[in-house]
């Protein structure tokens, strides 16, 4: 027997999946910009704004579910987690926009040093695949995949620290490149963090365990 709440929860999932797709688009566009310099700021801005709008919708729907159904147990964990996840996804969009802004303002990193571009390519690729993976985990509920996501997050953290250590000693790089590369890399690191938060929410949602992956 299906419950009235089930339809509402399905609606909620649909919105969350859509948000995930949009965030993935935004992040991949931001990466493309960083590495190849195409300007898609306006499009990313549009996506980021849509994500904020959708997150508001999610919050509203969740309140309606609470009012109507007083969810408990797995239902309660789903709505709590969805609330957090929708916020995390807006952050992904927002960081994509921040990256895009840096590219727009400083003209991208297409012409920067090879090793810097390697770092950015490496990190951004990892971050993007983390975004893809976390949304797949959310859909499939295959919780065992989370381990590899959190490993990638650790790698990104390491890359981030290494990058900072390395660039601090470089004296003959243009400050424009230093500033924009540090910021962009920082944003990818933040994106990875939020994906990790999403994984924590998924674990809580599916098992009730409160784990810290960071």
């Amino acid at each position: 027997m299906s419950r009235i709440m089930d339809a509402e929860l399905r609606n909620l999932s649909t919105i969350i999946y859509k948000m995930g797709d949009l965030a993935y688009q935004a992040v991949s566009m931001a990466i493309y910009e960083s590495l190849y310099g195409r300007d898609s700021y306006d499009r990313i801005k549009e996506i980021s704004d849509t994500l904020i709008l959708l997150a508001d919708q999610v919050e509203d729907k969740i309140f309606e579910i609470i009012i109507r159904f007083q969810p408990v147990a797995s239902d309660l964990r789903i709505v709590k987690s969805y609330m957090k996840i929708s916020y995390d996804i807006t952050r992904l969009g927002r960081y994509a926009l921040d990256i895009s802004y840096i590219n727009k303002r400083f003209g991208g990193l297409g012409g920067s040093e090879e090793w810097i571009r390697t770092y950015i390519a490496d990190m951004s690729e990892k971050a993007l695949s983390m975004v893809k993976m976390v949304m797949e985990i959310l859909r499939s509920q295959k919780i065992e995949v989370i381990k590899s996501v959190s490993e990638m997050e650790e790698e990104i953290d390491k890359l981030y620290i290494n990058f900072l250590n390395k660039i601090i000693d470089e004296t003959n790089i243009k400050s424009r490149v230093v500033v924009s590369s540090v910021l962009v890399i920082r944003y990818f690191e933040r994106i990875a963090d939020h994906v990790a938060y999403m994984c924590e929410s998924i674990i809580y949602m599916l098992t009730g365990r409160k784990e810290f992956l960071r």
Binding site: V72, A73, S74
Partner: peptide, 8 residues
């Protein structure tokens, strides 16, 4: 318990 309290 889960099924009972969530109405399933």
């Amino acid at each position: 318990t889960e099924r009972y309290i969530t109405g399933k």
